[in-house]
């Protein structure tokens, strides 16, 4: 049954992906990318990656939809029809995809307890995490303690990116809103 749900979700993902490429109405594309994120999040939950699914739902369906809508207010709502056929990108994507699929042949089976990833440091973490860090959840212990500096770096990158995006969006918004007005309220105006 879970397999059937997986297949149904993956088929819907493919349909949405093709539709995002084909549609020229950018508002519809933004909505579809939100739907794509929700479907992807369901797939992650089915794969037992609950934390990834949370991130996907919050960032993909929540924040990035809002950001894309903010961008949409600064551009036109229809995409231009491309003049040339994108043959070279298509070939590149197909070759890269084939290489990636070829790469998956060497991966251990999903959930295999003897996979290298589960035998390197994972048993030590599972055994020691609770009394070494005091966190009852092993994932939390790894994220916040064992690789705390890495997480700090990630947070810094995301914070910087967020500030950049906010500056870009709000800056051009102010310019656009100022445009039709006269300059008479400029001195002393609340910024």
């Amino acid at each position: 049954m879970i397999l059937a749900i997986d297949i149904a979700l993956l088929v819907m993902l493919a349909v949405v992906g093709i539709a995002i490429i084909r549609l020229r109405n950018l508002f519809a594309v933004v909505m579809l990318s939100g739907i794509y994120s929700l479907l992807m999040a369901s797939t992650f939950v089915l794969l037992d990656a609950v934390d990834v699914a949370f991130t996907e739902a919050a960032v993909g369906a929540g924040i990035s939809t809002v950001l894309l809508l903010g961008v949409l207010t600064l551009t036109k709502s229809r995409e231009k029809i491309p003049v040339t056929t994108p043959l070279l990108p298509l070939v590149t994507v197909v070759v890269t995809g084939a290489l990636l699929i070829y790469g998956t042949w060497d991966l251990p089976a999903f959930g295999d307890p003897n996979a290298p990833a589960h035998r390197h440091v994972a048993p030590e973490y599972l055994a020691e995490a609770t009394h070494e860090t005091g966190a009852p959840n092993v994932v939390t212990a790894v994220l916040a303690s064992y690789r705390g500096y890495d997480t700090l770096g990630e947070v810094t990158v995301i914070f910087t990116a967020g500030i950049g995006v906010l500056l870009l969006l709000s800056g051009s918004g102010v310019l656009r809103r100022r445009e039709p007005e006269e300059n008479d309220d400029k001195p002393g105006g609340a910024a």
Binding site: A61, G62, L69, G70, S77, R78
Partner: peptide, 25 residues
């Protein structure tokens, strides 16, 4: 998340300035 997301989208649709050149909808 879904509730907040839809509220955000609706707010943008209502108050955001969509440039609607060439779209009839």
């Amino acid at each position: 998340i879904n509730f907040i997301g839809v509220i955000a989208v609706l707010r943008y649709t209502k108050y955001g300035e969509f440039l609607t050149e060439g779209s009839a909808e």
